[in-house]
Amino acid sequence: MIIHHPLLGPRDAQEFVYLGDASLIDRPDWQAEDAAGAFHDYLYLRDNPAGLHRELWFHEQGDRSWLVVTRDTTTHEITSVELARDVARARGRSR
């Protein structure tokens, strides 16, 4: 698979390490009333869709940036690649 890195252009997927579902960006609030339950779901449960999947890849053998890759799990076709930093900021993280 070739991942079109937003900054570096087309890179072989071998340069990356895979983490998992991009929902891992949405870490729950540890001070919330239901934090224990929310962290259980966050850590252990997955949608695991057959079809489009937004997922986190780490460019370990490259610029060490985190990417959010949208990929079809039934064909391995990659349809979009974003910097995870941009995705997280758009969701209100790290302001």
Partner: peptide
């Protein structure tokens, strides 16, 4: 292999990735 896909039809989310 398809556990998440099938159990999702019963409304369950599983601690599984395929």
């Amino acid at each position: 292999g398809s556990s998440s896909r099938v159990m999702q039809k019963a409304g369950l989310r599983l601690p599984i990735e395929s």
